[in-house]
Simulated scan of single mutants.
Amino acid sequence: MDPRAKLPESEEGTVLFNTDPIVIKDHYEIDYRHSYAQDSPFFAGLARGKLMGSHCQGCGRRYATPRGHCMECGSATTWCELPHEGRVHTYTTCYYGSESFLKETPYTLILVEFTGVDTLFLSRLVGAAPEEVSIGLKVRARFLRNCKFKVTDVYFVSA
């Protein structure tokens, strides 16, 4: 065995809080430069309080999550504004999340369906206890006052 074919190890251990199930302490931090490229109008829309989706120029399909080309027919899409009101298609309550969501845990993720839109939009539902959430619940988009140009700049509340 080549001695260079071994990962270096440190003397650091992992803090173990529980053994069944295993619960550990873990830290993760990174700075990352990323271009939104062709999706930039979606994030610019959030800064203006607008939800932007895609409309297929070939078959007319409308996407809640923007894309440059239609997944059905392959035609190019154009930008379209989505409604701010929709309904919960499905949901889940998250008891663990990334560092960004630790203060909100537990939180509810929803897939929102909009009238006239062919796909769903993933977001958070804020201000409703897990037992108050149901499929079909009417919801309305809200936007952060100070845009961070992230998909979390939009969230939903019960309508």
Rank of each mutant, 00 (worst) to 15 (best):
N146Q: 15
T93D: 03
P21Y: 08
T78G: 11
G74R: 05
L111G: 01
C94D: 03
C94Y: 09
S158R: 15
K138M: 11
R67V: 11
K150I: 03
E9R: 11
E113Y: 13
I135V: 15
R142C: 12
C56S: 02
K25V: 00
L109Y: 03
E9K: 07
G74H: 06
G116W: 09
L16S: 08
F121T: 00
C56I: 05
V112P: 03
E99D: 11
R33F: 11
D31F: 08
G60P: 00
T90L: 09
R62T: 08
L46D: 06
E85I: 05
V15M: 07
E81N: 01
T90S: 15
C80W: 04
K6G: 00
V154Y: 08
S75C: 06
A47F: 05
R62A: 04
R67Q: 08
F121S: 01
T14V: 13
K25R: 12
V139A: 10
C73W: 07
K148Y: 00
E11K: 12
F43D: 02
I22S: 06
L16T: 04
I135H: 09
A159M: 06
C73M: 08
Y107A: 06
A5H: 10
L51S: 08
A159Q: 07
T105A: 15
E12K: 01
A44N: 10
T115E: 15
E113M: 05
A141D: 08
E81W: 03
I110D: 10
Y96D: 04
G60S: 10
P21R: 06
R142A: 11
G68Q: 12
T92P: 04
E104L: 13
Y28A: 12
V126K: 15
H34I: 11
R48N: 10
V126Y: 14
P21Q: 07
P130H: 12
R87V: 10
K150H: 14
T152E: 14
E72L: 12
R67H: 03
A47T: 08
G49R: 03
H69S: 09
A44T: 13
L16F: 03
D20C: 01
K150Q: 13
L7P: 10
V133H: 09
A5L: 15
A76V: 10
R142L: 08
E85A: 02
E132W: 09
F42P: 00
H27G: 01
M52P: 02
K25S: 10
P8H: 14
G127C: 14
T93Y: 06
F156V: 04
L111A: 14
E9I: 12
C59S: 03
N146G: 08
S134P: 01
L109H: 05
K6A: 11
D31G: 06
I30R: 09
E85W: 01
V157P: 02
T108P: 01
T93R: 03
S10E: 10
C56T: 00
E9P: 01
C94G: 02
K6C: 06
Y155M: 05
G116H: 10
C147H: 09
Y28G: 04
G136F: 04
K138Q: 13
T65A: 08
G86S: 01
A129K: 14
A44E: 13
G136Q: 14
V139F: 04
Q38H: 11
E12H: 06
